[in-house]
Design a protein around this nucleic acid. Structure first.
Length: 419
RNA sequence: GUGGGCGUAGCUCAAUUGGUUAGAGCACCUGGUUGUGGCCCAGGAGGCCGUGGGUUCAAGUCCCAUCGCUCACCCCA
């Protein structure tokens, strides 16, 4: 031990310890329950995909593809940095559009990005991901946001919903030109990052956090004012739908998305309780993407992802560190002496086969110590077996709640019935 | 990739202007008369003070380096 090198988890990779797992399960169960209420079906996807898939969908020039992917260079495969690409690959590969004209799918699992970790941001992180494929109806957009809002609401996580429209290939290029012109005019007074953005991804200048940039951007031409007739109508209907359902939201005309594939509706659920990581969920429409990945022509899609670490952090803030109920132990078998332990061991197995959770200590500790363990394990009953009990074929069944202890037959079926 | 903060027991933290065997709480183990949990009491175990150099009679404490964690920028869920 002395001179072995300590091995620890990789930077940005975290163990989720038993105590925390309870919260994760709570989140997963609630998410599945609500997604299924909105008739979404679960799909499970591989973690490794061809590198090409992500390069084509997310965009060659994005930070994710440029420098954050975990790629096996020699094999040309990558650990997924997000779920949409994989899900669409599966959708196309299995011809799911033929099976049903509108597919509602969700998936839950780990994603990988080689970023510098910080609060609410890890290198292996987990997302809830929902995609609706095959419809461009604005009600679908609304429904998806309604579903996310429902989940957050039922988790008691307060957020605000911000929406915007990014236009489509018909109107965005025109807007982009205008924006570039606007940026060019005041290039000298923008921050260094924004000057870089103006080349790489001009829309990003809109959501710069630097105060001096923000002030100027206020006067920048906005996306929503330059939408084509179809996009404007679509956006109006999405907003109308949200109002109809009573879902609070506000238009943030400076909200853009980092991934190339988004068009029209984009949205973000934001919180002020996570430091710099304000977005707990975000998504948008990507009508051209499926076709560009080799799917059916003109097939539209929309989806969103939620960061589970961020949700869990917020759940912890809401619920405090209160110990979530440990998995209940029905019976703790406290046996003294080798023969009694042997008998208890066999009895315990039978009880487990009968569906009871049974704990036992094999270390030969004192009865007092075993009772302490039973208490700590949260056992509902303790069964005490010693030489006397063994001889009589009976044991002492002690309810841990404080009720009177009684003598019981050492038969699994009888015991199972009384605990 | 760039900055700031922090590294002492499993966890949360103490340790005077550098001074001798580095402490506490929680958790853990064993007891508090025969074989009975929670509360209480007593005892025990548990640390190369992140690592490596340096200054000094003397370093957990000061200096340098390095590694790690963390927050923020960037980017994003």
């Amino acid at each position: 031990m002395g001179n072995t090198v300590k091995i620890q988890a990789l930077k940005g990779f975290k163990d989720i310890l038993p105590q925390e797992v309870a919260l994760w399960r709570q989140l997963e169960e609630k998410a599945r329950q609500i997604f299924e209420r909105f008739t979404c079906e679960e799909i499970r996807l591989p973690i490794l995909e061809e590198t090409e898939l992500f390069a084509r969908s997310i965009g060659e020039a994005t930070d994710i593809v440029e420098k954050e992917m975990y790629t096996f260079v020699d094999k040309k495969v990558t650990m997924r940095p997000e779920a949409t690409a994989s899900l669409l690959r599966a959708y196309i590969e299995h011809g799911l559009h033929v099976v049903k004209p509108v597919q509602r799918l969700f998936t839950i699992g780990p994603m990988f990005r080689h970023e510098r970790p910080q609060k609410g941001r890890l290198r292996q992180f987990h997302q809830l991901d929902v995609e609706v494929l095959g419809s461009q109806h604005p009600r679908v957009d609304t429904e998806l946001m309604a579903m996310a809002a429902t989940l957050l609401d039922e988790l008691s996580i307060p957020t605000s919903l911000e929406i915007n429209s990014l236009g489509c290939p018909a109107c965005r290029p025109l807007y982009r030109e205008k924006l570039l012109h606007f940026i060019e005019e005041r290039k000298d007074s923008l921050c260094a990052d924004c000057r870089r953005r103006s080349v790489v991804n001009p829309l990003r200048v809109l959501d710069c956090k630097v105060e001096s940039c923000r002030a100027q951007v206020e006067e920048a031409p906005s996306l929503v004012e330059h939408l084509c007739a179809e996009c404007a109508e679509h956006f109006a209907q999405v907003r109308g739908g949200l109002e109809q359902l009573g879902i609070a939201h506000q238009v943030n005309k400076f909200m853009v998305r980092g991934l190339d594939y988004y068009c029209r509706t984009t949205f973000e659920f934001v919180t002020g309780d996570l430091g710099a990581q304000a977005a707990v969920g975000a998504g948008g429409r990507y009508d051209g993407l499926i076709e560009s990945l080799g799917g059916p022509k003109g097939c539209p899609g929309i989806g969103f992802a939620m960061g589970m670490e961020r949700l869990v952090l917020l759940m912890q803030q809401r619920q405090g560190e209160q110990a979530v109920a440990a998995p209940g132990v029905d019976l703790f078998i406290a046996a003294m002496g080798e023969r009694a332990v042997a008998r208890g061991f066999a009895l315990g197995h039978e009880l487990r086969r009968l569906g009871r959770s049974v704990a036992m200590d094999y270390e030969g500790r004192s009865l007092k110590s075993q009772m302490k363990q039973a208490n700590k394990a949260g056992a509902r009953y303790a069964l005490i077996i010693g030489d006397d009990e063994l001889a009589a074929g009976r044991g002492q069944l002690r309810p841990m709640g404080g009720e009177e202890q009684r003598t019981v037959e050492l038969h699994a079926a009888a015991l199972a019935a009384s605990i």
